[in-house]
Design a protein around this nucleic acid. Structure first.
Length: 293
DNA sequence: CCACTAACCTGTAGGC
DNA sequence: TGCCTACAGGTTAGTG
């Protein structure tokens, strides 16, 4: 499900209700997610106050008053939703409900002004996982990540340095979280289309003999930033089951230029191409064979 | 180090 | 309706 824009949408949805809230209780209904939960997981959370919620790449980071950080990765189908039975705002009232299928972790919270609520982690495929650490650098998941794509450290010079002399296809290189952190299958296709780079192009060809980025590679960081920024503004993309914490959907899927649009005309102005689907390392890529090279 | 495949797990859509 | 196959937004372990 979630790439960077969807995770950022979740973060923004949780923040007003979870930041400042104290964790009263943790219930593990099915703790065998992609990786085992830390043994002291529940104990570390119980009684702590969530001081802030941050995002790094596709990871949600709940900073705790104890100095620890509780990390959540949503995998393909992970979602956090509220079962909030005492919100002060009546328009946000949800009926108390029985746990639903694939509800794996339940966190009871009390917020000083918003009241009590339960935060529920649901994940049908259980590709999501959670972690607990004191410093980000202690987390093996975080400490090898490449730059945030919305930060200044993500630029063409960085990509040229990572791409020089390598034969991997552009698609695989941008999915590699060590190169740039937060892109997934949708936004790689969209960004490569904007930068006029075919997903099967060898990345070494994007660097000239002096080690400098060629013209298309110069376009790529801006293309990535633009598409992610627009997707965040649209609340992410809902293909099948992505939901914000209050049950809403994203809207960016209506603005896809290429993703899941095989056979449709290329939306690039003055381009006569038709969107084509190919499979790379077992996953779909979409591109325009006319304006991407 | 690099490139590629298989695996993890469940649900759904489409063909017959 | 049932059965079968293909595919799905991610990441890691294992293989050359």
């Amino acid at each position: 499900m979630p790439e960077l824009p969807e995770v950022e949408t979740v973060r923004r949805g949780l923040e007003p209700y979870v930041a400042g809230a104290t964790i009263d209780d943790v219930e593990l209904r099915r703790p065998d997610l992609r990786f085992p939960l830390p043994p002291d997981f529940s104990e570390a959370l119980r009684g702590a106050t969530v001081t802030s919620i941050e995002r790094r790449a596709k990871y949600l980071l709940f900073r705790l008053s104890t100095g620890m950080t509780f990390m959540s990765h949503l995998g393909m189908t992970g979602a956090w939703r509220f079962r909030d039975f005492r919100f002060k705002d009546a328009s946000r009232y949800y009926e108390p409900q029985e746990a639903e299928k694939h509800d794996h972790v339940l966190i009871d919270l009390t917020h000083p002004t918003e009241g009590r609520m339960t935060l529920i982690y649901n994940d049908a495929r259980r590709f999501g996982f959670m972690g607990l650490f004191g410093e980000d650098s202690q987390s093996p998941y975080l400490n090898e990540l490449g730059p945030e794509p919305l930060s200044n450290s993500f630029n063409a010079a960085h990509l040229a340095q990572r791409f020089v002399g390598r034969s991997a296809p552009a698609k695989a290189a941008l999915l590699d979280q060590r190169v740039v952190a937060g892109l997934g299958n949708i936004y790689v296709s969209e960004a490569l289309h904007r930068a006029h780079i075919r997903p099967d192009r060898t990345i070494g060809s994007l660097v000239d003999s002096g080690g400098s980025p060629v013209a298309e590679l110069d376009l790529l960081p801006r293309a990535v930033r633009d598409v992610l920024g627009e997707a965040i503004a649209a609340g992410g993309s809902t293909l099948r089951d992505f939901r914000t914490a209050d049950g809403g959907t994203g809207y960016f899927q209506h603005q896809f230029a290429v993703y899941d649009r095989a056979g449709e005309p290329c939306p690039m102005p003055h381009c006569s191409g038709a969107i084509t689907r190919i499979v790379q390392s077992g996953r779909s890529s979409f591109f325009c064979p006319v304006c991407q090279h």
